[in-house]
């Protein structure tokens, strides 16, 4: 027993010695994660407490009663729980796919056009929407869709159509929200793809060109396969957020219109609408924790599937 322990110890020491240089390189990052990510995590446990203040936070935490899973009940008590989960998942699945496919296509295209000045300009311009906060985006969307003076309805009336009351008609909103989301984020993932393409080993292409492969063939059989690690990584990361939604997109852009709730209500808006007036951090932590757990489970599953096919491409 003692012997084994000793052996383990020396093993550990040896491994450490061997890995020390790399460990030192990763140490600053480890410290950062410990302080800024893991240390605050204790607050998650508030989800299982009937939190009452009593002195400082830690003391309050210790003296508050345990709540078990009580704080989670509100998430499932609504008659609309199914609808809310459906909305959250459907939107996110669509977003995940479009946010990978469209930026990828755009990145490939931007890389190909002859005029490099133009290509640079396009790149910068495609990034602009990312900078507008959702509040500003909601003003802009309103400027287009406003029932009385919106640009869109102005065009419709020019063609003799009756104006559409966009903020009263749920049927348009899945399309509008998806467009806004993709439009706003196109530049972000595009950069990753552009940089990845840029970092690819050129020799493959030279070989392919010598073989007389067309550009399309090169893209299909060199670029895309070589980009799979990036695609897979982006996919797994996105899956982790599948229960979370951009609050601004679903609350501010539809102007919190009650008539649209059947297509704009997601977990985040439900929590916001239900809890703000109560200000109970136990309940809101419970909401966040549920989102985390679902994300965690799905990430582990996705990662496991990827691992099965190609170990090197899995996230962890």
């Amino acid at each position: 027993m003692v012997n084994q322990k000793n052996k383990k110890k020396t093993n550990f020491r040896e491994t450490f010695k061997k890995n020390r240089p790399l460990f030192i390189l990763s140490l600053p990052g480890i410290i950062w994660f410990a302080i800024f990510s893991y240390l605050p995590m204790f607050a998650i446990l508030v989800a299982f407490k009937h939190f009452k203040l009593n002195g400082n936070f830690i003391h309050s935490f210790i003296t508050s009663d345990w709540a078990g899973f009580d704080n989670f009940k509100f998430l499932f008590s609504s008659g609309d729980a199914a609808l809310i989960i459906r909305n959250t998942l459907l939107y996110n699945i669509v977003f995940i796919i479009l946010n990978i496919v469209i930026p990828l296509i755009v990145a490939l295209a931007i890389n190909e056009i002859f005029n490099k000045q133009l290509s640079k300009l396009y790149q910068s311009v495609l990034f602009i929407p990312y900078f507008l906060s959702m509040v500003v985006v909601s003003y802009v969307v309103f400027a287009f869709l406003d029932p009385t003076s919106g640009f869109f309805n102005a065009v419709l009336s020019m063609f003799g159509h009756k104006p559409i009351q966009f903020y009263m008609e749920p049927k348009y909103w899945p399309f509008i929200l998806t467009t806004v989301q993709v439009w706003k984020n196109i530049g972000y993932n595009m950069i990753i793809f552009l940089a990845a393409i840029c970092g690819l080993d050129k020799s493959y292409y030279e070989a392919a060109m010598l073989d007389g492969a067309s550009k399309w063939q090169q893209t299909k059989s060199i670029t895309l396969p070589m980009l799979t690690p990036v695609l897979v990584m982006l996919l797994i990361m996105a899956v982790g957020g599948i229960f979370r939604t951009d609050f601004g997109l679903f609350y501010q852009v539809p102007k919190n219109s009650g008539a649209l709730i059947s297509v704009t209500q997601t977990i985040d808006t439900y929590i916001y609408r239900g809890l703000t007036s109560m200000g109970d951090i136990g309940l809101s932590s419970a909401g966040g924790l549920l989102q985390s757990v679902v994300g965690f489970v799905l990430v582990v599953i996705t990662n496991g599937i990827v691992k099965k096919y190609d170990r090197s491409q899995s996230l962890f």
């Binding site: 008590s77 009263m168 219109s257 009650g258 239900g274 809890l275 109560m278």
Partner: peptide
């Protein structure tokens, strides 16, 4: 009754504006 109130707040916000402003 926190769960019920959370759910009711949501129902209320679904109808509050449109009903009070005569939009529906």
């Amino acid at each position: 009754v926190t769960s019920q109130i959370a759910a009711m707040q949501n129902v209320d916000s679904e109808f509050k504006k449109t009903l009070n402003t005569g939009s529906v």
